[in-house]
């Protein structure tokens, strides 16, 4: 619906005639000092809360609120980190999150890639209608289904079982959409034709041609899925409260009567660092994935 309007005018524009990349940047205006200043300030603002969580996690609560708040890390970081890990059993929570996000990522990437391949390159009855259904559900937020989902999970006896968090996230409409887009652009039809002529069956084509070619797209989808799963809060908070994932566990540190803010923030550091590392390594791919998803969606 909305996506159609968006798509209507644009996809060809993503690849203008001629050599797009060179043209795009050669004629572009050079950034002035103002741009650098503005972007540097923005980058600092975006990084500041992360920095501040390390600062706060290295002090005592009284350091934080009595008098001038500290702006530099103090001596207590490892102390507070150890207390956070101990109090909230964050090691276990990290392990659970790793299992959940890893499984969700593998399943999303695999199932969405094969579905995306079918929608991109194969002809079958009902293709357009089925893809339309997948597309229409993109706008429906998952929050709406949490109440009945809880009923379903408790009937299945899966509450407080990691499966209750994994199953609803095991595939996404966005993933199918993203992979369909990627495969239809990256995989030439001739390649499939040639393989068919040589007598390759569809499964052979899938594993020997499609998956290798789609790998960069799958990597981006994998990173985005991992991030989304790692950071998810509302549903895990309901479904696995007694065997919490990292976000749920960190949110729980503050639930005591006299929450120790330094320990809470030490917990946020532990919960955040893995993803910041991922972002630092795969930043460009994530940027590409976000923009590709938006432009083509």
């Amino acid at each position: 619906m909305t996506r159609d309007t968006d798509t209507a005018g644009r996809p060809p524009a993503a690849a203008p005639t001629g050599s797009p990349t060179r043209r795009r940047y050669r004629r572009q205006d050079q950034a002035g000092v103002g741009t650098y200043v503005a972007l540097t300030i923005t980058a600092l603002l975006f990084l500041f809360p992360l920095y501040y969580s390390i600062v706060a996690a290295s002090h005592t609560p009284s350091d934080l609120y009595d008098g001038q708040p500290p702006l530099f890390p103090g001596p207590g970081l490892f102390d507070n980190l150890a207390r956070a890990l101990d109090q909230a059993e964050l090691f276990e929570a990290l392990g659970r999150s790793l299992v959940v996000s890893g499984t969700v990522t593998a399943s999303t990437v695999f199932f969405c890639t094969i579905a995306g391949f079918a929608f991109a390159k194969l002809r079958f009855t009902g293709r357009t209608a089925l893809f339309g259904i997948a597309l229409a559900t993109l706008t429906i937020p998952p929050t709406l289904g949490i109440v009945p989902l809880y009923v379903v999970m408790s009937r299945l006896g899966l509450v407080n079982n990691l499966a209750s968090v994994i199953l609803p996230a095991a595939v996404t409409a966005f993933g199918v959409f993203f992979m369909r887009q990627y495969i239809s652009q990256a995989l030439p039809d001739e390649l499939i034709e040639a393989a068919t002529v040589d007598g390759a069956g569809l499964n052979r084509i899938l594993f020997s041609i499609v998956l290798p070619i789609a790998r960069p797209g799958m990597a981006v989808l994998g990173i985005l899925s991992f991030m989304a799963s790692w950071n998810d809060f509302l549903w895990p908070f309901i479904a696995v409260r007694n065997s919490p994932t990292i976000q749920v566990a960190v949110a729980g540190i503050g639930a005591g009567y006299t929450p120790d803010i330094a320990v809470i923030l030490a917990g946020t550091v532990i919960a955040t660092v893995p993803l910041i590392v991922v972002t630092a390594i795969f930043g460009r791919q994530i940027v590409g994935g976000i923009t590709a998803g938006a432009v083509k969606s």
Partner: peptide, 28 residues
């Protein structure tokens, strides 16, 4: 959208908040 040095750094800095979980962001 200007052409600039450190282009990738600035772009990646844009997604730092997005990569931070809402739980962590809210607590901080």
């Amino acid at each position: 959208n200007y052409s600039m040095r450190l282009r990738n750094f600035f772009r990646v800095s844009m997604i730092i908040p997005y990569a931070t979980s809402l739980v962590a962001a809210t607590l901080v």
